[in-house]
Simulated scan of single mutants.
Amino acid sequence: MNAAKEALKGDSNTIIQEWVQLYAESMFAWAHYKTADKALAEDLVQDSFLAALQSFDKFKQESSPKTWLFSILNHKIIDHFRKEFRNPVQNEAESGLSFFFNSDGEWYKDRRPQEWPAADTQLLDNPDFRKILEHCMHLLPGSWLAAVSLKYLEQKDGKEICKDLQITPSNFWQILHRAKLQLRACLENNWFKK
């Protein structure tokens, strides 16, 4: 074993503590961007450092420590979305199509999509809007949030998401459709009607 590997092996706690100082902030920013949840992002970063400490002897220095840690973090994020997807969906009356449509399949008048002002094309640059969007996303059932996050935050394609979540394409697109309906209603009520 070369001297660098031997030095790494001997003091893994100290090295991980140094890496926390160097990389925790950027890892948190990445996890928060991917999950839109501050507390979850903190947990995922903490779990990543714990996993790095537990598997420290497997770090072969073929990549930088930052690359290795971000790889662990990305796996933790994907595992979180998989777990969320498998959580039971909320009551259909609360979160499903019955919220938007009556028994004849027609829109409830007060739940029809509203026209959004054209001036609001840069909403994601507005921190207040992002806060409302984050709130609305966390009102989605776990499986819907997982699908939306993988599609729009992770920017994965549908086939890859279906494989990751072990669902059919038709199920995936149905989930996305329902999630977008619920997100739109939440944003209309909490942002556009204020």
Rank of each mutant, 00 (worst) to 15 (best):
H177C: 00
N102E: 06
H75G: 07
F56T: 01
F59E: 04
L140S: 07
N126E: 10
A118E: 14
E115H: 12
P88L: 03
L150S: 05
N171G: 08
K66P: 00
N87Q: 13
D104N: 15
I132H: 03
R130H: 01
K60L: 13
F49K: 08
L139K: 15
Y152I: 00
T121W: 12
K109V: 04
M137L: 15
H135I: 05
S95G: 05
L145Q: 12
F70H: 12
I167N: 05
L50H: 08
D164N: 13
N87E: 12
I78F: 01
K58R: 10
H177Y: 09
T67R: 11
G96Q: 03
H80E: 13
H135N: 10
F59G: 08
F101W: 02
N171S: 14
K83E: 10
A118C: 01
Q61V: 07
N87V: 05
I161H: 08
E42K: 14
H135V: 02
A146H: 10
D128K: 14
I77Y: 02
N171V: 14
W107F: 15
D57T: 06
K131A: 13
Q46L: 09
N102F: 07
F101L: 15
R86T: 10
L123H: 09
Y108V: 01
E62T: 07
L69P: 08
K151Y: 01
K131D: 05
S55R: 14
I175M: 10
K131N: 06
L145S: 02
A93G: 00
Q90E: 12
D110S: 10
K60R: 14
G142R: 04
C162F: 10
S149P: 07
R130N: 06
K60H: 07
D79Y: 04
L176E: 11
L150M: 15
R111G: 03
L133Y: 15
